[in-house]
Simulated scan of single mutants.
Amino acid sequence: MRTSGPAPLTALDRRVAGCRACPRLVEWREEVARTKRAAFADWTYWGRPVPGFGPPDARLLIVGPAPAAHVLGRRYGVITTLERSRGQIEDSPELAGVGRNCAAVGGTGLGVLDLGDTDRTQAAFLAAAERARDAGAEVLVLGCAGMTGLQRAVGEKLGLPVVDGVAAAVKLAEALVTMGLRTSRVGSLAKPVPKRRTWGAGRD
């Protein structure tokens, strides 16, 4: 019997937003929320973990930066944090059917908490970006939300368009909402065909 209380997804969102399991991370994010980046000094920071599941009744599918990168150039490169993050990012374009347009996925060697060091981050990003450019990338995509702001700082130095994945996804979602578009209900995203299930068939 189900007890009363918040829906499972709502309860999980609350647990994520209230998580304080890593004291070092908690100290860092609370300090960032107080001091803020200079570019966003007048913003109110959330300063807590952000649940990544979305509302259970979501009506729109929000996609990431790949469409923006394809508009700006034929082949793109993704710059991320640690080298071990590359595998998952390399697999994603293949699953989305755009793997042939991905020239390179480069790691900066920096963890998320290291991105607060602006000079070090820019230097590492430039080095990884130059390797991606040499591999054939015509457009670069920031592979971590913590890199937001680098597109302005290093774009001109590289001579390549640099796409902020977070901003691109938000703007694309805004455009879809403005045009009144929703996720397709035919083909691969159509409602599943009803199936009859017989449990324990063939057993005595």
Rank of each mutant, 00 (worst) to 15 (best):
A135K: 07
G146H: 11
R100N: 04
D119T: 06
L113C: 10
D119P: 02
G109K: 08
L126I: 13
P93Y: 07
E90G: 00
D91Y: 12
F125R: 00
L95R: 15
E94T: 15
G146F: 11
T108M: 13
A128L: 09
A96V: 13
C102L: 15
L142V: 03
C144G: 07
Q122W: 02
R86Y: 12
A127Q: 12
A104H: 14
G143L: 08
M147H: 13
M147I: 05
E138T: 03
S92Y: 14
D119S: 09
A127E: 12
A135N: 02
V98H: 00
G106I: 07
A128E: 10
V98E: 00
L95D: 06
P93D: 04
T121N: 06
T108W: 15
I89M: 15
L113A: 13
D114T: 13
L95K: 14
G136A: 02
V141A: 05
S85G: 08
L110P: 04
A127R: 10
E94S: 13
R131S: 14
G107N: 08
Q88E: 13
A132P: 14
C144M: 08
A127H: 09
G107F: 01
G97W: 10
L113H: 05
L126W: 06
E94P: 03
V98F: 01
D117I: 12
D91I: 04
G97N: 11
A123W: 07
R120E: 02
R120C: 01
T118R: 13
N101M: 08
V105M: 07
G136D: 04
V98Q: 00
L113P: 03
G111F: 02
L95I: 12
V141Y: 03
A127T: 14
C144N: 08
Q88K: 12
P93Q: 09
L142M: 09
G87V: 13
V98A: 01
A104Q: 08
A137W: 03
T121Y: 08
D134C: 04
L140R: 07
V139A: 04
